[in-house]
Amino acid sequence: MTTTTEPVYDNRVAFAEELIALARTDERIVAVCNDSVGSSNLGGFAREFPDRLINVGIAEQDMVGIGAGLALSGYVPFVCAAAPFLTGRALEQIKADVAYSRSPVVLCGMSPGLAYGELGPTHHSIEDLSWLRAIAGLGIVVPADDAETRSAVRWAAGAATPVYLRIGRFKVPSVGADFRFGVAGSLRDGTDVTVVATGTMVSRALRAAEEAAAEGVSVRVLNMSTIAPLDEDGIRRAMRETGAIVTAEEATTTGGLGAAVAAVVVTEPRPVPMRLLGIHREFAPTGATAYLLEHFGLTAGDIRAAAVSLARSLTRPDG
């Protein structure tokens, strides 16, 4: 097992710092939350802009509706809540008040995936990508590190379009991601297999690629920070150039990144073999985040094993 001493970062901190910096120069920016000032890391924003933080209490449907009203009134609302409650409780409002109405609301799903660990299945947010991918007109962005989080926040503040930002809680290292909405970032070149990863899985995919190289397997790593709209051209290019794809996500594969990529792959004239790493339509148990990621096969070692196994299983024509 590879160990590392590289610094790691909580993306919620990067989110909050960037939001405050933007708010200092743009009075339209407001924050709306559901009694989650602490968990959304909005304490600093509240102290500096007390009149621009709207805390609706534990009323997520109202929260999204208020955000939509503010957006239609010319404000730039960042609607912040724990991801399972923002997306699960207020799904109808996200659909009707935000996406259908084309309200430029920035929905901020905090601490998604398995980040709440011991709080259990009610707090795990593994279905959010699947739910939201089904809604037309809603951008979905999952930053991979602190720098990409800052870039995504800046982009969302000026995009004037409905978007969901999935802001990770547990700490990850910087990966050198360069955010471009709708475009997958190539973080490592490779010729034998492509790992398409998102969010917290990107740094693990890069480590997996390093380990695979020691076994003679060349792994390309794509950072799919935009889940919707998906970079279909990037996926097709990876299909042609590497001949196999592994997806890795801290979410259910039923309708998330893996399903989105598979939908592109299978509609091509020459589909390629795939492996989907994630949570396969089951409730995640209660336990520490590190344990849960290991339980569901989402470690760097698991990604390496899937990529190496898939690459070695291929019978590819010469040239």
Rank of each mutant, 00 (worst) to 15 (best):
residue 215 E to T: 01
residue 127 E to L: 13
residue 194 T to G: 04
residue 273 P to I: 08
residue 189 D to Y: 03
residue 63 M to D: 02
residue 231 D to H: 06
residue 137 G to M: 04
residue 108 C to D: 01
residue 279 I to Q: 08
residue 96 A to C: 10
residue 147 A to Y: 10
residue 103 S to C: 12
residue 176 G to Q: 07
residue 248 A to M: 09
residue 312 R to M: 09
residue 22 L to K: 04
residue 49 F to M: 04
residue 139 G to C: 04
residue 106 V to R: 14
residue 216 G to R: 07
residue 183 V to M: 03
residue 14 A to P: 10
residue 293 L to N: 13
residue 14 A to C: 06
residue 35 D to H: 05
residue 22 L to F: 02
residue 102 R to C: 11
residue 203 S to H: 13
residue 312 R to T: 06
residue 73 S to N: 13
residue 49 F to S: 07
residue 48 E to A: 15
residue 213 A to L: 12
residue 267 T to M: 11
residue 80 C to P: 01
residue 111 S to R: 12
residue 38 G to V: 09
residue 149 T to M: 14
residue 59 A to F: 01
residue 249 E to L: 07
residue 194 T to Y: 02
residue 106 V to C: 10
residue 172 V to M: 11
residue 78 F to T: 01
residue 244 A to E: 05
residue 171 K to P: 03
residue 2 T to D: 12
residue 127 E to D: 15
residue 281 R to G: 08
residue 94 I to P: 12
residue 188 R to G: 04
residue 79 V to L: 06
residue 9 Y to I: 09
residue 277 L to T: 07
residue 97 D to I: 01
residue 42 L to A: 05
residue 105 V to E: 03
residue 167 I to L: 10
residue 293 L to K: 15
residue 188 R to S: 05
residue 138 L to D: 10
residue 87 T to K: 02
residue 120 G to Q: 04
residue 106 V to A: 04
residue 272 V to T: 06
residue 62 D to G: 00
residue 265 V to Q: 08
residue 112 P to M: 01
residue 303 I to R: 10
residue 267 T to Q: 15
residue 47 R to S: 15
residue 175 V to T: 14
residue 178 D to H: 13
residue 124 H to Q: 10
residue 84 P to A: 00
residue 274 M to N: 05
residue 137 G to Q: 06
residue 319 G to K: 06
residue 39 S to H: 03
residue 186 S to F: 00
residue 300 A to P: 01
residue 9 Y to T: 10
residue 21 A to T: 08
residue 151 S to T: 13
residue 206 L to R: 09
residue 42 L to F: 04
residue 33 C to G: 03
residue 21 A to H: 03
residue 253 T to H: 05
residue 42 L to Q: 06
residue 24 R to M: 02
residue 269 P to R: 08
residue 163 V to C: 13
residue 242 T to L: 10
residue 8 V to Q: 12
residue 257 L to K: 12
residue 224 M to W: 07
residue 266 V to G: 02
residue 122 T to H: 02
residue 287 G to K: 09
residue 112 P to Y: 01
residue 270 R to K: 14
residue 57 G to R: 02
residue 85 F to S: 03
residue 47 R to V: 03
residue 100 Y to N: 11
residue 312 R to F: 05
residue 161 T to A: 15
residue 112 P to C: 02
residue 216 G to F: 06
residue 254 T to I: 13
residue 297 G to T: 08
residue 245 I to K: 11
residue 43 G to L: 09
residue 234 G to Y: 08
residue 225 S to Q: 15
residue 223 N to M: 01
residue 74 G to E: 04
residue 304 R to K: 15
residue 277 L to Q: 10
residue 273 P to N: 07
residue 110 M to I: 12
residue 40 S to E: 05
residue 139 G to N: 13
residue 301 G to Q: 12
residue 303 I to S: 09
residue 193 V to P: 01
residue 215 E to G: 01
residue 17 E to H: 13
residue 33 C to S: 14
residue 72 L to S: 12
residue 158 G to M: 09
residue 177 A to Q: 09
residue 44 G to M: 07
residue 108 C to M: 11
residue 257 L to I: 10
residue 93 Q to N: 09
